[in-house]
Design a binder for these strands. Structure first.
Length: 483
RNA sequence: GGUCCCAUCGUCUAGUGGCCUAGGACAUCACCCUCUCAAGGUGGAGGCACGGGUUCGAAUCCCGUUGGGACUGCCA
């Protein structure tokens, strides 16, 4: 295995962030294309945030996205001893020094300073380590650190813009920049592909990586290359916020976005396939993806476009595949997995699998997400028609002509041959004496039968629903209208 | 404030000095199709932030301005 070694290192929050998903995807594409090795590592160093379910959530989301990893998931906390050993090596070789300043003391001291941040007060005080001292990294006073970045080229950071940052907490805990970097060393990571928000802290890691390579007791590890991906932003052009923006991958899955469409859309954020076609297979993604081609500017996560693409993917499904895919949304009780927090409007007894199979083709081309299906077909399964009151008033209650048409429809439909075509012709004929074109005459019937003015083709729906139910609904509508 | 990143239609992007009268996609508008709604088809409107250079020639290279963003924790 001579290919690159990459890793995805999400922190365990309650859900999988779309930004993490995009980062994971780009790592995965890079690894798969180059016969590389992809590692999943969960950054659970901060004990307060450590959640037991988080690991399972991340693994589940990765599986849904179809991003398989070659090793892991590892927990960063399990490598605690190595982090400490690396910190001790840095300390022993003079790269770290102890500091017993409190936040208050520092703030007081630097109040008037032009440059914010720690002032290096303890650099040469040889403070004795204790449970109140932290370990700080001695940042060179002059010079720059260069971050080699595949996306942006070499980025140079002046040392004097960095304070002597804390590496080890007073309680002995090793902070993220070191822990994360030590893990990358032990995993022999060759390419660090992550969000641009990490770019400013990268020089710290580069400095410490180099320092470690200079420690005689530490094995030399060649420096990795970086690829900082452009941020995913909201409409306000701010970094996607987990509080204000819809960023949970799980919620997109629950709403009925297909993972294939989701992945395809994610790939388009900061990258684009060759040619004019944006809907491309996973294989094409793997074949064409280039880190060098990743764009430099932030990308807005546009749900509208995602939704459109999802509709295209749904329509491209075979009818059988569509029915199978739809099952969790229409018959959640029959599946292992079902969308969370999604109640179906009908009961298990009311639902009719065979009928749904016949209805499916009518809705397949009308929905953009699987979650839209129930509302569109509920009138097939519900005993009481789910009337939309405003529509009912407008189309039937306040329209005497519509009521007249309904009466004649009841009479006519009682004897007519029960097929789509005949129903179509009959409705056309019913409207003529009233001076109603078909688009006008079908409206009250549609409203009476389906409860609303929009939906699947009416006459096919009526055929599938059956004569008895249709006639009953027509009569009920008149009663409801008080006519 | 400091450091760094970024800048093509409203949005995602193609474009790597002449193929650009700037291409595609989403959104939007119009028309067609049509039993509603979609889908589909056709067409339209819409962009190189600004100012200087470099060059025979700049969306493309350089500088500056402006604008946006990220980071700046004993979080990750």
């Amino acid at each position: 295995m001579t290919g690159p070694r990459v890793r995805m290192a999400p922190s365990p929050t309650g859900f999988f962030h779309v930004g993490s998903a995009r980062t994971a995807l780009f790592n995965w594409l890079f690894a798969r294309q180059n016969d590389g090795f992809f590692i999943l590592r969960i950054e659970d160093t901060d004990a307060a945030r450590n959640l037991d379910d988080a690991r399972e959530g991340i693994v589940t989301a990765m599986a849904w996205l179809g991003l398989d990893f070659d090793a892991g998931p590892f927990l960063q906390s399990e490598l605690w001893a190595e982090h400490v050993a690396s910190a001790e090596a840095l300390y022993a070789n003079g790269y770290l020094y102890a500091c017993d300043c409190t936040r208050e003391q520092i703030d007081e001291r630097i109040k008037g300073n032009a440059k914010p941040g720690y002032d290096g007060f303890c650099r040469d005080r040889h403070v004795v380590r204790s449970e109140v001292t932290v370990l700080r990294f001695r940042v060179p006073d002059e010079g720059v650190t260069i971050v080699p970045d595949i996306v942006r080229g070499d980025v140079s950071f002046p040392h004097d813009s960095y304070e002597d940052f804390i590496v080890v907490r007073s309680n002995g805990g090793v902070l993220y920049p070191l822990a994360n970097m030590v893990d990358d060393r032990s995993d022999a990571i060759t390419h660090i592909i992550r969000g641009e928000d990490l770019l400013p802290t990268t020089p710290k890691q580069v400095m410490m990586w180099e320092a470690l390579n200079h420690c005689p007791e530490v094995a030399f590890v060649p420096h990795p290359l970086y690829a900082h991906l452009p941020m995913l932003v909201n409409e306000q052009r701010k970094k996607l916020s987990k509080r204000k923006d819809p960023v949970a991958v799980e919620s997109y899955r629950d709403q009925g976005y297909l993972s294939s469409a989701f992945v395809n859309y994610l790939a388009l954020l900061g990258w684009s396939p060759r040619g004019d076609e944006e809907i491309v297979s996973r294989e094409t993604l793997v074949a064409q993806f280039r880190l060098e081609d990743v764009s430099h500017s932030p990308a807005f996560f546009d749900v509208k476009k995602l939704t459109h693409m999802n509709g295209e993917y749904i329509r491209a499904l075979s009818l059988d595949a569509f029915i199978e895919t739809a099952t969790p949304w229409v018959a959640p009780w029959s599946n292992e997995w079902r969308p969370s927090d999604r109640a179906v409007p009908w009961s298990r007894e009311q639902f009719d699998v065979a009928l749904f199979a016949q209805v499916a083709h009518l809705v397949q081309e009308r929905v953009a997400t699987m979650g839209e299906i129930p509302a569109m077909v509920s009138f097939f399964f519900l005993d009481d028609v789910p009337y939309d009151d405003a529509t009912f008033d407008k189309i039937i209650r306040n329209d005497p002509a519509a009521q007249t048409l309904l009466r004649s429809a009841i009479e006519r439909f009682a004897t007519v041959t029960w097929t789509t075509d005949v129903l179509h012709e009959a409705t056309l004929a019913l409207g003529e004496p009233l001076g109603m074109a078909l688009r006008k005459s079908q409206a009250p019937i549609r409203c009476a039968v389906t409860g609303t003015s929009v939906g699947p083709p009416l006459f096919e729906s009526m055929e599938l629903l059956g004569r008895e139910k249709v006639l009953q609904r027509l009569r009920d509508a008149l009663v409801r209208a008080g006519a």
